[in-house]
Amino acid sequence: MAAYLEVDDVSVMFKARGQNFLAVKNVDVKVAQGEFVSIIGHSGCGKSTVLNVVAGLVEPQAGGAVLNGRQIDGPSPERAVVFQNHSLLPWLTAYGNVYLAVERVFSATESKSGLKARTEAALALVGLTAARDKRPGELSGGMKQRVGIARALAMEPKVLLMDEPFGALDALTRATLQDSLMEIQNQLHMTVVMVTHDVDEAVLLSDRVVMMTNGPAATIGQILPITLPRPRARLDLAENTDYHHCRAAILRFLHEGSARPIPKAA
């Protein structure tokens, strides 16, 4: 498998109350082009930290990440992020939020009408054409997150990074958005890294699930390939034994002690 995105032996240290705190230790992940990889683990295990290293928002103390042969240093629109709390600018409409990103990425090479078309296409992709002139305050949580996804997709990133994108939504809305995301993924075949703490979400959406141990010094415990055929349908999977095996494997990892911190060598 050719690595398109490679996280190479990354360790991240934070300073908290004057003390150094090793959040993430020796994390290695390779992601192929067009692959959907989820990172799962308990809260505070450093999943988001790994994602932020790829995003360029956090600088690792050791190791680094390489995308398409180029070392990652700092954030860039080629690695678009869907933030957990959508992070839409409340003074711009849905259209305005997406346009801001489109303008930044494509204004050098495309005409104004091209930028408009891209913005409209992105909103249509997430089913928000009718709500384009609404501000985030007028949108439901699910719709806000759709705008967040549209903004990220509109940038045509090399990698789409999603930081618990549906974590703040109710279960039904979450399911609708997961289905939408799968539909979009079937069309676009993006390279995606998603952080989640939802086992079903990880199995349903991913090609591989990376399981992280608990912090401090969190690292990768196990990697589980999900070989379920695509396109996947939520209802069919409910009866699928492979699906349940994958689910069980992740649950076992999360709850049977393997997610516990590695005992320190005596």
């Binding site: 997430v126 089913g127 928000l128 054409t129 009718a130 709500a131 609404k134 305050g137 007028e138 949108l139 439901s140 699910g142 719709m143 759709r146 809305t173 609708t176 289905d179 939408s180 539909e183």
Partner: peptide, 15 residues
């Protein structure tokens, strides 16, 4: 409720 597309049927946030 505004139905945007068959897969999207979230109610508009009440304001």
């Amino acid at each position: 409720v505004k139905v945007l597309s068959p897969s999207v049927a979230e109610p508009v946030a009440a304001n």
